[in-house]
Design a protein around this nucleic acid. Structure first.
Lengths: 253, 253
DNA sequence: CACAAAACGAGAGCACTGCTCTTGCTTTTC
DNA sequence: GAAAAGCAAGAGCAGTGCTCTCGTTTTGTG
């Protein structure tokens, strides 16, 4: 895989990367809908048809960007988790770290976030390649709960209202697939928290909080702590200095 | 406004409606990204340039569709609320009714849902016209809490962890703006529940639950009940016969 | 080394898009 | 009845994704 490469092959990987980089630049500026292969080729100084030797279609390029976005977000989440103290530390702090990292990344890369967590592109169905990177944030969240469980800092779930059978089956399947050493109700709670984390972030990034909530960071932190409590995570909340400070509503005209 | 209209004016409103209807048809089939003015004009048998006499741009057409979508969703939510018993009835049932109506509408109209709650269109910023219809679901949720409060069926919020100042300000502003006779912590809780409701629905509609949760309706109902409990809504959960039955994952290839 | 095979870049071209402008025609208004 | 306004259609512009062909360059192999 890392054999010494001929000049041509090296040029190929370089150009492929250059195309993806320029595409990501345009994506970050204008959004996925306005990403134009011709524009990418233009700023790269090559003919638009030449671009098709590297990415057979616009969808393929988008897929590459999607994978990268998942990976960047996942890496940020993992980094934040690693920096938030050892596995034996207070789980609430670690939980907050991961959640705040997700929010911070999303606010910094709104178009890339929209690409992976927004409305799916019409004719496009995410290929299986994306499932691995897509799971990284979820795995980080799982790690927090798992470590807390292992170190006895995972209390009882907030409200376990008799897991219905289908949900229990899902939880057990997930626990088996991902090797999560947690009881089914905890897994179900974890999935719910995962969904709500991204619900919070999406609402903010997509501008749905405009004219409703101004204290975005406080709102987010509050919700995150509540999620953690419902999971049974213990520890004191670190309330000061949120990962992303307040900013005015980001709408245009 | 409802003066008798000349033939020309009548034709105008008819054609305007026909354009919007056809556009909505294409939107429902292909999604907002693939909505083409020329295609609409084609199936309507008119020249594409003629269409611009009725909608000055694609964005204006989209705005009309957005308003309609908000209104349709809001109407469904209000209808479900009205059918879920009197204001003095058990608030949990009414809460569930509204939430389920939102989910059902979203699953039936995924592209229209994506138009209003998905990633925003690049150059497009929602005009103020949309804010009224957009608020209808929120107002229905507020009505549930308000009625419960008025009839003494609103318990204490689940976990009021010392509302931070910015959030409290937001809550008080909202309570004043919308005339909500509820204490600030309850308003804050309500907003959080509102966000999480749409987070749940969006995750499901946008296919993020694929390969994770199969028992979608159970998952949703569970989360909705938890939201209601955290609000302090009382009553027994109606668990049987969810508004939308299970269906297999809706992904393509 | 020579030569066929593969990879490559550029250009032309197709079908499509949103949108504008001009040209006639019809309806309304004075 | 004439002037004004509204209207439909067509041509056209600039842009898009994508395909195909045609020379050129690089590669691996006999």
């Amino acid at each position: 895989m890392s054999r010494i490469t001929g000049a041509r092959e090296r040029a190929r990987t370089e150009i492929t990367a250059a195309i993806k980089d320029e595409a990501r630049r345009q994506l970050a500026e204008e959004g996925a809908g306005r990403l134009s292969l011709r524009a990418v080729a233009r700023t790269l100084g090559i003919a638009s048809s030449a671009l098709y030797r590297y990415y057979p279609s616009r969808d393929e390029l988008l897929t590459a960007l999607i994978v990268d976005a998942y990976d960047a977000l996942g890496a940020d989440a993992e980094r934040a988790l690693a920096a938030a103290g050892p596995p034996a530390g207070p789980p609430l702090v670690r939980w907050q770290a991961v959640c705040r990292a997700v929010r911070a990344w999303a606010l910094e890369h709104p178009h890339e976030y929209a690409l992976i967590y927004g409305s799916p592109v019409p004719g496009y169905s995410a290929p299986l390649v994306t499932t691995g990177p897509a799971a990284r944030v979820g795995l980080a969240l799982i790690a927090v709960a798992r470590d807390a469980h292992a170190h006895g800092t995972l209390g009882a779930p907030g409200s376990p209202p008799a897991l219905p059978p289908g949900l229990r089956a899902d939880a057990e399947r997930l626990a088996a697939e991902l090797d999560i050493p947690l009881p089914a109700p905890a897994v179900a709670e974890l999935v719910a928290a995962w969904v709500q984390l991204f619900g919070l972030v999406s609402f903010e990034v997509f501008g749905q909080l405009n004219r409703v909530v101004d204290a975005r960071a406080e709102f987010f932190d509050q919700a995150v702590v509540r999620l953690a409590r419902s999971l049974g995570l213990t520890g004191d909340s670190l309330s000061g200095q949120p990962a992303v400070t307040e900013r005015g509503s980001s709408e245009g005209s």
